[in-house]
């Protein structure tokens, strides 16, 4: 998906996943060869920006087209970015489009295993897929928080947030707020206002990939339902040790059988 959006060389697309993983991994991830993982990380990410600089140079000298690199290279506000700003923007797109969606896909399988009544409801009525997708994104909350810097003094809940204070906004907490969401711990695929959650953030810095993520999850389930009568989770998933990413390191499943599909 990302490779398409960047018009990234298709046979090298796995580099994108690698850079995403490297950018967020800690020493316990097993991705690094030495103890000096920060240096290793930096070296790989310099490789990332070098690679993308080649794509930039290709596209800046060609007529503008619809991929993200071309849009950045020709965009009035972005054409003069320095190397680190370019890397920052790339990583935002690469990471933002990678593990959040991936973990929510895994989460959707887990939620369905834990809530067989909801899965039954979905199979009986596949038109619930979009609403189930939103509920899954709320239930999973693939990023637990984002940080903002206050631009002015503000009183919230009796506490003063001062201009310049760095503030964590806990999506994970908002998405379980019983004052805003009825029975928030439960996974219910036909809520009245399913898109009314905070997983994509709010305001001018909300997730730019909101619609893309919903689309990917929707297509996934439109394809799973007719194909697989069952996807069985075999054991408790192993979670990623992170305060930011609510994700899965592994979750083995078995697909006992598949439906015969008509040729397309």
């Amino acid at each position: 998906m990302l490779a398409t959006l960047f018009d990234f060389p298709w046979d090298e697309r796995r580099k994108l996943t690698r850079w995403s993983d490297i950018a967020t991994a800690g020493p316990e991830s097993g991705l690094f060869l030495t103890d000096d993982y920060e240096t290793e990380r930096r070296m790989e990410l310099f490789g990332c920006v070098d690679y993308f600089t080649r794509l930039w140079n290709e596209r800046v000298n060609a007529p503008p087209k619809g991929d993200l690199v071309s849009l950045l290279a020709h965009g009035e506000a972005t054409r003069n970015m320095d190397r680190m700003e370019y890397l920052g923007n790339l990583l935002l797109l690469i990471i933002g489009g990678n593990d959040t969606t991936r973990n929510t896909m895994t989460g959707s399988i887990l939620a369905m295993n834990q809530n067989p009544d909801q899965l039954r409801k979905l199979r009986e009525n596949p038109s619930l897929i979009p609403s189930m997708v939103s509920e899954t994104i709320r239930w999973q909350t693939p990023l637990s928080n984002m940080r903002r810097t206050a631009t002015q003094d503000f009183k919230l809940g009796g506490k003063l947030i001062r201009k310049g204070d760095k503030v964590l906004i806990w999506y994970a907490s908002g998405n379980r707020d019983e004052k805003a969401i009825e029975n928030p711990e439960a996974y219910i695929i036909h809520r009245e206002r399913p898109r009314n959650h905070l997983s994509f953030g709010f305001g001018i810095h909300r997730c730019v990939g909101n619609r893309l993520a919903e689309l990917q999850l929707r297509i996934l389930w439109e394809e799973i339902l007719p194909r697989f009568p069952e996807i069985r989770v075999l054991e408790e998933p192993r979670r990623v040790p992170s305060v930011l990413i609510r994700g899965y390191a592994s979750m083995p499943v078995v697909i006992p059988s598949r439906n015969a599909m008509r040729a397309r």
Binding site: E192, F200, I204, R206, R211
Partner: peptide, 16 residues
Amino acid sequence: NGVPGIDADCGGACAC
């Protein structure tokens, strides 16, 4: 008021 047809993704910040 639950009027359908207005998504308002960004929550009213003129950003979506």
